[in-house]
């Protein structure tokens, strides 16, 4: 089995790119691969807990919790997150908070890296 690291930069709402990143992570994890998911830029807004799933909008919370249960490591860029007014106490449990070097360190040990750019 291989290690895949996904860098996810787009926002949760407004495009389907974020959904693609999560579904890809799930597919890889289901095949038994080790998956790391890094959020930066607007994607960091998706780690806030208590998201209301209105059907006109994408939602991240329940999918992120499911990925965590499957053993996917998820980390948000702390600077990007606090810049958006989200504090650690408001985040989804078990999502890590770290600096950008977390992403580079995961890349170091990865067989494949997929960088999914933002807006």
């Amino acid at each position: 089995m291989a290690t895949l690291t996904i860098g996810c930069f787009p926002g949760l709402v407004g495009n389907m790119t974020y959904d693609f990143a999560l579904k890809l992570a799930e597919a890889a994890a289901n095949k038994g691969h080790k998956v790391n998911l890094w959020f930066s830029g607007n994607a960091t807004g998706s780690i806030k807990s208590h998201q209301k799933h209105l059907k006109d909008y994408s939602t991240g919370e329940k999918y992120l919790k499911a990925l965590l249960e499957k053993g996917v490591e998820i980390c948000t860029c702390e600077a990007c997150t606090v810049a958006r007014g989200i504090q650690k106490t408001e985040g989804i449990e078990k999502i890590q908070w770290n600096a950008m070097h977390w992403y580079l360190a995961k890349i170091h040990s990865s067989d494949r890296v997929l960088q999914i750019g933002g807006e």
Partner: peptide, 30 residues
């Protein structure tokens, strides 16, 4: 125009501190 191009620079600069998360002798060079 967007944030991503700026984030490329800051992520690259982060190589300077990545060694605290790596094994001895491991490095990342962007």
């Amino acid at each position: 125009k967007g944030e991503t191009s700026r984030l490329a620079i800051t992520h690259a600069i982060a190589y300077q501190t990545v060694e605290i998360l790596l094994e001895d002798g491991d490095t990342v060079t962007p």
